[in-house]
Nucleic acid binder design. Structure first.
Lengths: 226, 226
DNA sequence: TTTAAAGTGTGATTAATATCACATATACTA
DNA sequence: TAGTATATGTGATATTAATCACACTTTAAA
C-alpha cells in the first residue's frame, strides 16, 4: 500500500467531494491504492466482495461470463466508482473488472463506505444519483439491443466510446475487435465486416489503433435507424 | 386524494420501515394515493418527473419507446418503488409505467424524498441496496439477451415471472403475447410458435389466461442453454 | 531476429428469426 | 345479441447474422 492523501487526490468522485476532513482522514486509513497494467484483472467474478472499487485513473471493462462466452457490460473511465452494484447488491461479485490501459484503483473498505452512507446524506444522495443515471443508461442500451440491427449497435457503441470515454472524435481505440464484439453482443467477424464497410465508406478511419470518426452525422444516422 | 395513514400501511417499502413517526407524518402530508385500472398509464415517458412512485398494490410494466416500437424493460410487483431511476437520474421521465392489473400507487414529493435521503442514512442505504440489486439483475438479463436464442429467453422470462412476481408455478399471466414479445425482445409470431411448442411438449399449459408450469426442470434447462 | 500467439479478414454455408399476409378465435362494446 | 376490435395462429418467404474454415497480419515473447 502506497502512502497517499485522499484529501489531496485530484481524481475525487462527485460523492467524495462532500466528505469532511475527518472523513477523509478515516478514508485514507481504510483504503488501498493499487496500480494495474493493461490486461490485469482488478476483481474477479465469483469472488467475495468486501470493498468498493474506485477508478482513480485509467479505463476498465466491466464484464461477466454469459451462457457461452464473456459479455462486456460497460466500459468505465476515471474518475468513477465501478464496483458499487456488486458490493452492495450481493455478497459475491456478479461481474469482473479488467484494466484496458494502465490504471490506478482505490479499494475502499465496504464497512467504512457503508458508514459514510449512514452518516453523510449528501454523500449517499450523490451515489443514488449516479446509480440512477447508470440504470437509465442500461435501460436505453437494453431497449436498443433488441431493436437495432448490428451495424446500428456498432455505430451507437463507437459514438458512446467517443463521447463518454474520450470526449473526442479521434482516440486510441481501447478494445480489440473481439472485445468490441463482446460489448456490442455480436461475433468478431461481423465487427470486422462492419468496420471495413464504415472505413470503405469513409465514415471512420483507423490508423493503427487510432480511430477517427470522419462523418459523425452519418454514424449518428446509422445508430438512430438501427 | 384519499385520506390515508402511511404509518399504518401494510405495504411499506423496506426503506420506509426505517422512518420515524415524525417522518411518517410528513410523508403523509406530501404524498398522494392514486388508484389505477388495468391498462391505465401511471406516468408517461417524456413528462417532467417531480415525484417518486411507490407501488402499494398491483403489478406494473416499465416500458419505453425503442427505435421502432415499445420495449418493456421490466415488470414491477408491489410493494416496491418503480420510479426512482427516472426521478433522480434525469429531469424528464426516461420511461413510462402502465398498470397490468388494478393497482394503487403512492406518489411522493421528490423534494421530501430527497430530504429523507439527506437526513436518514439507513433509509438511503436501503435505497442504494435496492438500486444495486436492480443493476445486477439488469446486467444478468443484458448478458443473456445477446447470448441466448429466443426460446431460451422465453423460458427465462416465464421462470422469472413465476418466481419473482407470483412466487408460484400457476398464475394468471399478466401479459398478452404481444407484450411478452416486447419484454423478451422478439416478434409476437415467435412467441406464439414457442408457447405452442412448449404446450405441445407438455412443458407448460395454458387454461385461458392461467399459465401452469408443468416441467420446471425442462424450462430451466432451456433457459440455461439459451 | 525468429518463433509463437493473438488478432483480423474473407468467402461460403447454415441457422435463426423477422416479416408478410391472411385467417380464426376471443374479448369488448353498443 | 351482434358488431367491432384485439389477440392469436400459421404458412411462406426474406433477411440478417452466426458459424466454419482457413489464410494473412500484427504483436509479443524467447
Amino acid at each position: 500500500m502506497e502512502n497517499h492523501k485522499c484529501i489531496d487526490c485530484e481524481f475525487k468522485s462527485s460523492a467524495s467531494k462532500i466528505l469532511s476532513s475527518e472523513e477523509f482522514d478515516i478514508l485514507e486509513k481504510n483504503s488501498a491504492l493499487v496500480f494495474f497494467k493493461k490486461g490485469d484483472i482488478i476483481f474477479k467474478q465469483g469472488a467475495l466482495s468486501t470493498n468498493v472499487a474506485y477508478l482513480r485513473t485509467g479505463i476498465v471493462k466491466i464484464h461477466k461470463r454469459g451462457v457461452s462466452h464473456e459479455k462486456i457490460l460497460r466500459i468505465a473511465k476515471s474518475p468513477s466508482y465501478f464496483g458499487i452494484p456488486t458490493t452492495f447488491g450481493d455478497k459475491i461479485n456478479q461481474y469482473a473488472a479488467t484494466a484496458l490501459e494502465d490504471s490506478s484503483v482505490c479499494f475502499i473498505d465496504s464497512n467504512l463506505f457503508r458508514n459514510f452512507i449512514f452518516k453523510n446524506g449528501k454523500f449517499a444522495y450523490e451515489l443514488i444519483v449516479e446509480l440512477c443515471e447508470n440504470e437509465l443508461n442500461d435501460y436505453e442500451r437494453y431497449a436498443n439491443q433488441s431493436q437495432k440491427q448490428v451495424p446500428g449497435l456498432v455505430a451507437e457503441t463507437l459514438l458512446c466510446i467517443a463521447d463518454k470515454i474520450f470526449n473526442s472524435s479521434r482516440f486510441n481505440f481501447p478494445l480489440s475487435q473481439s472485445e468490441l464484439a463482446d460489448l456490442v453482443g455480436t461475433s468478431r467477424e461481423s465487427i470486422s465486416r462492419i468496420l471495413s464497410d464504415f472505413s470503405a465508406n469513409k465514415i471512420i478511419a483507423f490508423n493503427g489503433k487510432e480511430l477517427n470518426i470522419l462523418k459523425r452525422d452519418v454514424l449518428e444516422h446509422i445508430s438512430e435507424k438501427g
